[in-house]
Amino acid sequence: MSEVFEGYERQYCELSANLSLKCNSTSLLPDGVEKNAKVNEVKSGLDDCDVLIRKMDLEARSLQPSVKAMFLAKLREYKSDLNKLKRI
């Protein structure tokens, strides 16, 4: 197993969960300065998620074929999850 990948994975999962909560709470805010600030926080978080996914991708591709496929499958799920968050 790749400890590096798993470290990135933990960071991504925490960030993704926080972003999901922020997206839901931001949609309830009235338009204004506070909402714009929250939207900017979410955008920054999405950028951070993109960076973590790229790091996981590089790490997964450097692994031996016996474990590589498993990590790439997880990565596909995370990419799909991130795309859903981007559409919210």
Rank of each mutant, 00 (worst) to 15 (best):
residue 37 A to N: 07
residue 16 S to C: 10
residue 56 M to N: 02
residue 60 A to T: 02
residue 88 I to E: 13
residue 72 L to K: 06
residue 26 T to N: 14
residue 77 E to I: 13
residue 41 E to V: 06
residue 14 E to A: 11
residue 86 K to F: 14
residue 39 V to L: 13
residue 66 S to F: 14
residue 28 L to W: 09
residue 51 V to N: 03
residue 23 C to Y: 08
residue 31 D to H: 14
residue 73 A to D: 14
residue 60 A to D: 02
residue 62 S to H: 01
residue 60 A to E: 02
residue 7 G to Q: 02
residue 88 I to W: 12
residue 26 T to V: 14
residue 33 V to P: 04
residue 6 E to C: 03
residue 19 L to A: 10
residue 20 S to E: 08
residue 69 A to P: 06
residue 29 L to I: 07
residue 20 S to Y: 08
residue 52 L to M: 08
residue 14 E to I: 05
residue 1 M to G: 14
residue 67 V to D: 14
residue 26 T to G: 14
residue 4 V to N: 00
residue 72 L to P: 09
residue 78 Y to H: 13
residue 77 E to M: 13
residue 19 L to E: 07
residue 9 E to H: 09
residue 88 I to Q: 09
residue 21 L to W: 15
residue 47 D to V: 07
residue 47 D to L: 05
residue 50 D to A: 08
residue 84 K to Q: 04
residue 18 N to W: 08
residue 16 S to A: 10
residue 81 D to Q: 13
residue 50 D to N: 08
residue 87 R to L: 06
residue 21 L to V: 15
residue 10 R to Q: 09
residue 56 M to G: 00
residue 78 Y to D: 03
residue 61 R to D: 09
residue 46 L to P: 06
residue 46 L to T: 10
residue 32 G to L: 12
residue 76 R to S: 07
residue 82 L to K: 10
residue 62 S to L: 01
residue 50 D to H: 07
residue 7 G to E: 01
residue 76 R to K: 15
residue 28 L to S: 13
residue 8 Y to A: 00
residue 48 D to R: 05
residue 68 K to G: 05
residue 88 I to N: 11
residue 39 V to W: 05
residue 78 Y to F: 14
residue 22 K to E: 13
residue 60 A to P: 03
residue 21 L to F: 15
residue 63 L to V: 00
residue 34 E to I: 15
residue 63 L to I: 01
residue 74 K to G: 11
residue 73 A to M: 12
residue 72 L to I: 07
residue 47 D to W: 03
residue 51 V to A: 06
residue 78 Y to W: 12
residue 1 M to V: 15
residue 80 S to F: 15
residue 2 S to H: 02
residue 44 S to F: 02
